[in-house]
Structures are given as C-alpha cells and as structure tokens.
Amino acid sequence: MTGLTGSAGCFDAILPYIVTILLISSIYAIFALGLNLEWGFTGLLNFGHVAFFAIGAYTTVLLDLWGCPLVLSIIAGVALAGFFGFLLGIPTLRLRADYLAIVTIGFSEVLRFILLNEEWLTRGPFGVYGFERPFQDVIPYQYYNTFLLILYVAILVAIYASLERLMHSPWGRVLKSIREDESVPSALGKNVFWYKIQSLMLGSAIAGLAGALLAFYLQYVSPATFKPIETFHAWIIIILGGTASNRGTIVGALILWTFFSGTKFISRLVPLESHQMGAFRMIVIGLLLMLLMMYKPEGIFGKKEELALSD
C-alpha cells in the first residue's frame, strides 16, 4: 500500500517536469523546422534564425498589450517575421550562400540591440510581461501547462504535416534541386531566386510562430531570451536529427532538451558550480556532435545519399 502511494507521489512530482521538457522541445522543434526548410531543403545558410523568433514573440506580446485581439497579434507576429525574411532575402539571395549567413547573423544582433535600447517600444532590458495567454481565463492555472502542451503538439503536428506535404510536392522538388546545384533548375526554367525567397519567408514565419509560443510559455520575453546561441540550438537540433528530415528535427529537439534538463538533475551530483555546469554541458554536446559527424554525418534520421554537407 505504502509502496503504491509512494510511486504515485513520485510520478506526481515528475509529471510537471516531463510536461516542461515536452513543451520546450515542441517549441524548439517548430523553431528548428523553419531552419530545416531553409537549410535542409533549400541549402540557405541562415545564421540569424533567432531574429525571426524574436520578431514573432515581441510583435505578438506587444500588440496584445496594446489591446489587439490575441489571434490577430499572433498572425501579425508570424507575418512580420515572414516579411523580414523577404526583406533580408532580396539583397542577399542573388549572391553566394555565405552572404545570407553574414547578413542574417548581423541582423539578429542588430535586432537584439534595438530590443535592448528602444525602451519606448520594447521596454528595454526589463523585458515584456503581463500579456494575455491563450484561453487563460478558461483553463485552471494548475492545468495550464498541460493545456499548452496539447495545443503546441497539435500545432507541431500540423506544421510537420504541412511541410512533409510541401516537400513531396513539385514545389519541394524545385527546392531540393536548388540545394544541390542551382544552375540546373535555372537551365530548366525555374526562377531560383523567387523559390529561395519563398523558402526564407516561410522558414522565418514558422520561427515567428515559435516565438509567440515561447512567449506564452515563459510569460515573459526580454532581449536576453534571444541571444545568438538560440540560432545554434536550432542548428544543433537539425544536425543531430538529420538534415532535411522533418521527423529528425522533432526528435533532435526532444533529445537536446532532454539532455539540457537531464544534466540539470545530474548537476546536483557533480561537484561543479552552476556556471561551470553550463559550460560543461556545451562541451559534452560539442563532443557528441563531433562523434556524430565522424560516425553518422547524416544525423539520426537523415539519408546519407541526401547529405547536404557533402559534395
């Protein structure tokens, strides 16, 4: 009898923890699916993906605070992220791949400093809080995270299904041909530049949506939420899961966040300060990625024949 209640109690304690991991994984899975569309399927090197994450989050919560209905705020956040993808694509996507990388990484940092310094608009380093969350008046507080998880997983599944459908359409076929050698689709009459713009816009819009979802989960956003490392979390996720595999991206997100959270548990057993532990985790991740690159460069679900990094 006591054993049973004991295990139930343990389960009760662990459940919110699991919900948290799944929540953050699903947000990052959506975020990384946007990058996977750009890099995995189109070959676009975006090193500033976090900028679109931030645009989505800030637009949504600020509009909400200014009295805009929540649904419209989210739509505006997604649209604005997509629009900035378009703006950045126009001057860079006719050039070599590395120009997009340089411009996007610069843009993401410029944006973060704008968020820090333009206090009249963004409230600066203190961040934004006190905004509405979806159905917050209807769902009791103790069930709210579970509700968010169901909502986010549903959104994730919808995005995954849409992307899979797109990738198996003639549209996706053109993207894959661009990834490999854009002179071929050009010689076959495809407007390569326009396809790259579309891919960047769509990927950015997806990141924007992930940003809004992150804000609802955290109930707070600040410039520090959107440091460049977030872009590289997305990169780790897609490399881990397998470039050009949407399924792999979702699994990659789950692995990365389980690892991040799991090592927080272990940190109680390891004699390291918390900041040392943070560095230690990145060392372990780096090591794991190097091993992965050496022995399974296509990632967990990637296809070796479609490896975007090889020639």
Binding site: R173, K176, S177, R179, E180, D181, S183, V184
Partner: peptide, 9 residues
C-alpha cells in the same frame, strides 16, 4: 560540359 545530374535526387 561536366554532366550536372542532381545526385541527391
């Protein structure tokens, strides 16, 4: 001149 088959397709 050098055939450009899309080798990953």
């Amino acid at each position: 001149q050098i055939p450009r088959a899309l080798s990953k397709m």
